[in-house]
């Protein structure tokens, strides 16, 4: 599904952040990336989502066989990518409900499909919001505006649940969540698991991986993956830290 090959990325003012990243994710798989602060995890997700300000100097990103690097952020969403941000942005004056509906209809339109009827949309929204413990008040408020850290994260998962992507990247969605919220969010993710859908989960805590069981765990250090393994690799770094991976 996703194939990243020897990716090197500079930020616009010169520093190289990703230094030869390779990663392959197949349909239905869950991959986790762990790594020290500043190792390039959020940069990886931003580059995958098409955020401006980065320059790919080497390598390629292929998503479902298509060269992703040429696509604008919204086109990537249309192809089935979703990024739950580490730091979701606040948009004042635009209600959460309105934002979600605009988002869904934009994607459907770009795919050449018909709009979702208001009834269908609201039913789906209420169900998903309920599952994630998101109050109707939060749906009426401006997007993420004045939301607590945990509420913002849950809101990201709500957007994911509504958009039903093929590949979802969760960038530290667990950070800032209390233990109950962590369970709610994890079950939200698990309910979306399918043989057709893949996840890339970025986290600092092995704890999340008790709830969302990964097929693979990767350790990222200084802009590339230095070790890959099965779920138990997370337990190993939790115990021993990253020191042995730092050169």
């Amino acid at each position: 599904m996703l194939k990243i090959n020897d990716l090197k990325v500079k930020i616009d003012d010169g520093a190289e952040i990703l230094k030869g990243l390779s990663l392959e994710i197949s349909k239905g798989e869950i991959h986790a990336i762990m790594g020290p602060n500043g190792s390039g995890k959020s940069t990886t997700s931003n580059v995958l989502a098409g955020k401006p300000g980065y320059e790919v100097t080497n390598g390629s990103i292929q998503f479902l066989g298509e060269d992703f690097n040429q696509l604008t952020p919204d086109e990537r969403v249309v192809q089935g990518l979703f990024l739950a941000f580490q730091y979701p942005v606040e948009i004042q004056g635009v209600t959460n409900t309105n934002f979600l509906r605009t988002s869904i209809n934009s994607v459907l339109k770009a795919r050449g499909e018909g709009k979702m009827s208001p009834g269908e949309f609201l039913t789906k929204l209420k169900t998903k919001a309920n599952e994630l413990g998101i109050s109707s008040d939060m749906l009426k408020r401006s997007v993420n505006f004045g939301f607590s850290g945990g509420e913002k994260k849950r809101n990201e998962i709500l957007q994911m649940a509504m958009l039903e992507p093929k590949l979802a990247i969760l960038d530290e969605t667990d950070s800032g969540l209390d233990i109950d919220a962590l369970k709610v969010v994890s079950s939200g993710v698990n309910s979306l698991r399918s043989t057709e859908r893949s996840f890339l989960v970025i986290t600092h805590y092995q704890r999340l991986l008790n709830y969302i069981l990964p097929d693979f765990v990767h350790i990222m250090v200084q802009g590339k993956i230095v070790k890959s393994g099965a779920a138990d690799l997370a337990l190993y770094v939790e115990k021993n830290g990253y020191s042995e991976f730092l050169s």
Partner: peptide
Amino acid sequence: FYCMSRGLTEEESTALVVNG
């Protein structure tokens, strides 16, 4: 970028942010 990463085109994103 946040709007675009939810599928809105650049123009739609601008309109939405300005309406806000």
